[in-house]
């Protein structure tokens, strides 16, 4: 922010702005297509009308009602499942990452350097390489096809630990902690009441990133879950799409459900990003990322 205002040089280059305009159109086209076509019924979709404009009959409410009642309202369940996985995975991963990052930054303990090197190495391990062995381990424990199969592996967020470590190291001065200890506060209380408030901006960021990662996850739940009542919305819509493409003729109504389902499923995250804009944009303007 400060950089911007200090520059104070309002420059408007028309060609660049026009170029930006084209880019914005490109990035918005899929959204526009989904918004337009989720208003159509099967005849509007397949009737050969303009695919980038509304049909004569705009029927959002009818389609919405169909979406949330189809197959005993399975779509609503999927949205709730996604929400549960995102909150449980996000909050859990954040708590673990905040504690571990703080521990790595503020305590010298045995094997600390080695452990931290392991965490950094873990950043380079592709997450999907873990899914198959985790599945076999979980099936031995009878955990596959339960919500735990999706939530537990989501608790692992080495990048969150790394971010929290860097942040705690720079934002929480040792002197403050020592002062709190000298005043008789225990280690836990020092962490919760002194260090944690100082780390809050990074905590919000790690929480947002972990929750988004859980919400977007596809490979893990696809592998772990077979009961479609446990699916998150990503796997659910993938399932519908597979069914609809497999027998195109018989399931024309499913297509309009998928289109509206895609639109409805992206609304929560778009709202989250817009309302939390101040957090991530405020953070951005400081330019701190590391």
């Amino acid at each position: 922010m400060s950089a911007r205002s200090r520059a104070r040089r309002p420059q408007r280059h028309l060609p660049l702005q026009v170029l930006l305009g084209f880019l914005v159109v490109y990035f918005l086209v899929p959204f526009w297509w989904v918004i337009v076509n989720s208003s159509k019924d099967a005849s509007g979709l397949f009737g050969g009308g303009n695919t980038l404009w509304f049909a004569d009959r705009i029927d959002y409410l009818g389609n919405l009602q169909q979406l949330f009642t189809y197959d005993n309202g399975i779509y609503g369940r999927w949205i709730l499942n996604s929400t549960l996985y995102a909150i449980a995975g996000g909050v859990g991963a954040t708590i673990l990452a905040v504690m571990a990052g703080y521990g790595f930054a503020k305590y010298r303990f045995a094997a600390r350097r080695f452990s931290f090197a392991l965490v950094l190495g873990a950043l380079m391990v592709p997450a999907t390489a873990l899914v198959i062995p985790t599945f076999i381990m979980f099936s031995g424990l009878g955990l596959t096809n339960t919500i735990w199969a999706v939530i537990l592996p989501s608790l692992l967020n080495p990048f969150g630990v790394y971010l929290m470590h860097v942040y705690a190291r720079d934002a929480v001065p040792d002197e403050i902690l020592d002062a709190a200890r000298a005043d008789g506060a225990g280690e836990l209380r020092t962490f919760l009441q002194v260090a944690f408030p100082l780390m809050r901006p990074a905590v919000v960021t790690v929480l947002l990133l972990s929750a988004v990662a859980s919400w977007n996850n596809y490979f893990l739940p696809l592998a772990m879950l077979s009961d479609n009542r446990l699916f998150p919305v990503t796997v659910g819509l993938g399932l519908w799409q597979g069914i609809a493409s497999a027998n195109n003729a018989g399931t024309t109504s499913l297509w309009s459900l998928i289109i509206l389902g895609a639109l409805v499923s992206v609304i929560p995250l778009i709202i989250a990003f817009f309302t939390l804009q101040r957090h991530w944009r405020g953070g951005l303007s400081v330019g701190g990322l590391r």
Binding site: F159, A171, G283
Partner: peptide, 12 residues
Amino acid sequence: TTRVGHAVFGRP
């Protein structure tokens, strides 16, 4: 699937 989230947070 899960690209490691990174970026965006402020430092005091």
